[in-house]
Amino acid sequence: MTTLLEVSGLGITFGGLKAVQDVGFRVNPGEIVSVIGPNGAGKTTLFNMISGVYKPSTGSVKLDGENVTSMDPYLLARRGLSRTFQNLQIFQTMTVLENAISGFHLQEMGPLLADLFHLPSMKSRAGKAETEARALLERVRLGNAAEKEASSLSYGALKRLEIARALALKPRVLLLDEPAAGCNAVETEEIDHLIAEVAASGVAILLVEHDMKMVMRISNHIVVLDHGEKIAEGRPEEVSRNPKVIEAYLGTEAANA
């Protein structure tokens, strides 16, 4: 199996502070790799580097063999990398449906003139995107909320909407930054199933999550960060037994488990 996402030696410095240093790992198709670590360990920074939001100072990111280091997010999206955000980045004043359709942007975009004059070609593209977006909303149980303004949704629902928007791109690599944060147990379980389902369809998933039960349950592989450095990696049961990890992060919770 070929590696879809390959990160090597990735590091970034913010004004002299080494936020992330020499981090590397691989994600294969259908695999769920989780990045864990205490607050401030550099997980989101790592995500931002992989997804092109930050430009790393060192190292490289390869997508299906192609070097995509520091590439703008919109170009990465065209190459099949999509992500969600820890602090929601929803288009608040748009409807839930429009948010979902925006995930189909690359599919529904055409010539500007077609948009300005509502030519039939635009209508068929937009119509197709809308149909697919509605199906996707059903899948994350937001079908009934389609016409509502996004800002009126609950936090958990917005989390699902963001996942739907990311899935709309039909990504090959999906980066999920704390998808279950702020969700109740039922919602967490739903997201849990959804992630497993997406992975089963062959998508490479990179996950940051604080819910340890969820991480241990669904991850194939875990990368542990502390102070911006990788201190351990391996299968969930290996990582949870690693003394360095227990000391840095898992603490008593894992020791008692």
Binding site: S51, Y74, A77, R78, S82, R83, L106, L169
Partner: peptide, 9 residues
């Protein structure tokens, strides 16, 4: 930022 991640130029 979200616009860029869905592929919007």
């Amino acid at each position: 930022i979200a616009a860029r991640t869905v592929g919007i130029d």
